[in-house]
Design a protein around this nucleic acid. Structure first.
Lengths: 336, 336
DNA sequence: TTGTAGGCGTTATCAA
DNA sequence: TTGATAACGCCTACAA
């Protein structure tokens, strides 16, 4: 592996000069510089990042921290889109992105903070982390710049990005109501998730706005899991035959719900109307195509990275970024 | 940021002893060790990876190199599954994974090799890289351990992993033939891709085995793109009304093909039978559910990482790993 | 069982 | 415009 020392020797100059030339300082003789650059090129010199990081304190790296990378996960394509948005922005400002994830299988002994500190990471984007994760708190305390996706920022060096989940859910539920539904169930996500609460609030708000009594037995939690949504929907529909519509807090759960409806020999949307959340690639291919709330995770990833960079550079930044959402009407909701 | 120096001072020992204690050497007094560990814990010591990497030469990091991370991509979930498989294995042996990608937008000036060398990366898994990529050649030459997905290994320090694409394609085509189809079109992927050639061969082999003449006008290339498959299928079906079946080299292309069939007021499978390739999450939700060739990218990712580790550790390894595939019969193929 | 000292590849400070 | 030299944080002979 070639080093600046090798270049120095070959060029007959000191390593200092080589370093300066390589870093494009202006206090190097143009001829010397060219010579050095040529040699570097010739012997295939590549700077050693570890050495650079050791002496400079930062290393132009962003982290994306995920709650897990499950073998059967990813069907919603959310992580992919988040990731590509982040990469896209990071690349444009010459930053790199590393991905860190805690597995549910091996309980990792290492915390997020440890990972970030070990690697001199400037800041992190967090997705899918539970607020009751013990490591989460530590991260918040660490004053490492963090952008939280779908959790409102609280700590010092944190900010957040999401759509207006309450509003979006209100609109979704409202759509059902506009179609004359009054017995509307909600398949919510993980009880502990901040978004779940927001979406619950939007749901109840819509009902209240329309003078429909909120029935808490109509609300179930399926942890954003397709299978769980399937079984919970089965229970719900069997128990409350009056129910004619379902608001699902994710498209993956809507998929499970649809399956349950079919299993019960009912039809979507003729018997049961369903509206989902996220607009995942799958949703337009469901039978029938799913009416849902669209949110753009690519842009979310991009903005998150942009935001993170502002925080790292101590520039002014908005504490909470709210992105646009939109209701996408397809075929899974019909008039009662 | 606390360093071993801080610990040493606090413990009243030399940094050497601290280093030894931290690295769990056995030539440290148990009492001393405990004291050091306690202090380290107390002041929240985290080792500096850059410093470690600088002195040790390797750094327990694997790279996964992708051809790109497109905003509208990822729908096939392949990268996600590859990634999670790799992470899963890497984690079990205490390795980290970094993701590197060349964007099509900004033409990155940095090569894969540069990236890997800069970061002291032990080895890389490559996916979706074109063989005519100029950087690809450089990587092969670099004698950095590489595992290629879906490209047969050629160089010194490279190996490959894939299913038997020829066989899988032959079986897929054979299935069509078993259903009495004789006018079978093929929607192939990128002309330059190694897999495309393999799949082409499997297709022709099946035809030949059954004494059906290969008609080269029946074969089109759609670069694994849904939209392109759509328009190519339109052309194909309009031009050759005798065609009754289509073998698509990816499920995403099958999706485009299905759309074209529908657009022409034909039905799948009554008028046109379709078989895909990959078994992406979407395929079972298509209308009708897609008959396809299943390959498990999670396992592929896992095996790739395992393989890479063997190469890095100079252990014996198989040059080409062939994984199992299987034909998944759903509803998109019917008897003529 | 412990400490001293040298070095990993760079950058940065100072002096020449 | 250049060159010594001292860091950066850690590991590892070698010596004690």
């Amino acid at each position: 592996m070639a080093t600046i020392k090798d270049i120095a020797k070959k060029a007959g100059v000191s390593i200092t000069t080589v370093s300066r030339a390589l870093n494009d300082y202006d206090d190097v003789n143009a001829v010397t510089k060219k010579k050095i650059l040529d040699i570097a090129n010739e012997i295939g010199y590549v700077p050693n990042r570890s050495a650079q990081n050791l002496v400079k304190k930062k290393n132009n790296t962003l982290a994306i921290i995920l709650s897990g990378l499950e073998p059967d996960g990813g069907k919603d394509n959310i992580i992919y889109r988040l990731l590509s948005g982040m990469y896209r922005y990071a690349e444009s400002v010459n930053y790199e992105v590393v991905l860190y994830t805690t597995s549910s299988a091996h309980q990792r002994e290492k915390t997020y903070v440890q990972f970030c500190k070990e690697h001199n990471i400037g800041g992190a984007v967090l997705n899918g982390i539970k607020m009751d994760d013990p490591y989460f708190y530590e991260l918040m305390e660490s004053n490492l710049p963090c952008v939280l996706i779908d959790i409102l920022a609280q700590g010092e060096n944190t900010s957040s990005i999401s759509i207006n989940n309450l509003e979006a859910s209100r609109e979704a539920t409202e759509l059902l109501i506009q179609h004359q539904h009054t017995h509307i169930g909600m398949i919510n996500g993980r009880r502990e998730a901040a978004v779940s609460l927001e979406r619950y609030r939007g749901y109840t708000k819509a009902l209240e706005n329309n003078k429909i009594a909120v029935n808490h037995d109509y609300i179930v939690y399926a942890d954003y899991l397709e299978d769980k949504a399937y079984s919970k929907t089965m229970d719900l529909l069997k128990k409350y035959p009056k129910m004619t519509a379902l608001f699902c807090a994710s498209d993956m759960m809507a998929l499970g719900a649809m399956k349950a409806v079919r299993q019960l020999n009912l039809r979507v949307p003729e018997d049961i109307s369903i509206i989902g959340f996220d607009n995942i690639p799958l949703s337009e291919h469901m039978t029938p195509p799913l009416t849902t709330v669209d949110q753009d995770f690519y842009i979310m990833g991009e903005k998150a990275a942009e935001q993170l960079l502002k925080m790292i550079k101590k520039e002014a930044y908005k504490k909470n970024i709210i992105l646009q959402h939109k209701i996408l009407e397809r075929k899974s909701v019909s008039m009662l």
